[in-house]
């Protein structure tokens, strides 16, 4: 009798004719009959646990880490830092903060510090002075014919030279102030970025030291529990 036929009989996956033939064989073959009885007992044994309810718990557990958390975590931090720096450079990101607020923005730096306000006020004053001087010169030009009879006269060429000289002086001062303002802004921006990086690195360094301490403590505890020299375990921690 083929093994496949025995299995078919055990699981009743055979035709009526095949079943009848098998029953006939069982009557005449005690060895086959005993074999089927033994296998049926195994089936009964298997079936005893069929009705025991086993409930899959949900939510599912998180996966066991396949490698060191320490390694993957620091790779992730390093990658994130790189992405942030590149993105910050490309997008011209600026980050500022003071006692009241933390600000992040894109584009040209326009921080309203006291120094810059003062500089802007100076610029406005100069502009106003320029306008005032131009007005006064224009008025003076208008009265020149009257004054000319009694005092010295100012011809057009002199007037133009005076005006041009005055405008050039104001432009030069204006340019100097703008350069000072740009340098001041650049300097403050650099200081902020350096401060930010320094703070971030300090924080990460502190975290890293804390992690290392935890890992070392874990190794010591594990070594104590397993009664193994700590060096044997330490070489498996790649930090």
């Amino acid at each position: 009798m083929k093994k496949e036929q025995i299995v078919d009989f055990l699981y009743e996956e055979m035709s009526e004719q095949e079943k009848s033939d098998m029953l006939g064989s069982l009557e005449s073959n005690t060895q086959l009959s005993q074999k089927i009885a033994e296998l049926q007992d195994v089936r009964s044994f298997l079936q005893t646990s069929k009705d025991v309810p086993v409930i899959a718990e949900v939510p599912l557990p998180s996966s066991k880490p396949s490698r060191s958390i320490f390694q993957s975590r620091w790779w992730a931090i390093a990658a994130s830092l790189l992405v942030l720096l590149v993105a910050g450079k490309l997008l011209d990101v600026r980050v500022t903060w003071d006692d009241q607020q933390f600000t992040m923005g894109f584009g040209e730096y326009t921080e309203d510090t006291q120094g810059q306000l003062a500089t802007q006020q100076q610029l406005a004053t100069l502009q106003a002075t320029l306008v005032s001087l131009e007005e006064r010169l224009a008025a003076q030009k208008e009265v020149v014919p009257i004054q000319a009879a009694t005092t010295e006269t100012i011809d057009d060429a002199t007037y133009q030279r005076l005006l041009t000289s005055l405008q050039q002086t104001i432009r030069n001062e204006n340019q100097t102030l703008k350069q000072n303002l740009a340098e001041q802004i650049q300097s403050e921006q650099n200081a902020h970025v350096e401060g930010l990086l320094s703070n971030v690195m300090d924080y990460w360094d502190a975290q890293r030291r804390e992690d290392l301490k935890m890992i070392n403590d874990g190794i010591m505890n594990l070594a104590g529990a397993l009664n193994v020299p700590t060096n044997d375990l330490a070489q498996n921690v790649n930090y």
Binding site: K3, V7, L10, E38, V42, F45, L46
Partner: peptide
Amino acid sequence: IKSRMYYGLDAMRKVL
């Protein structure tokens, strides 16, 4: 598959 079933049941019988 049926052959594996047969040998599997027989192996369990031996364990029992």
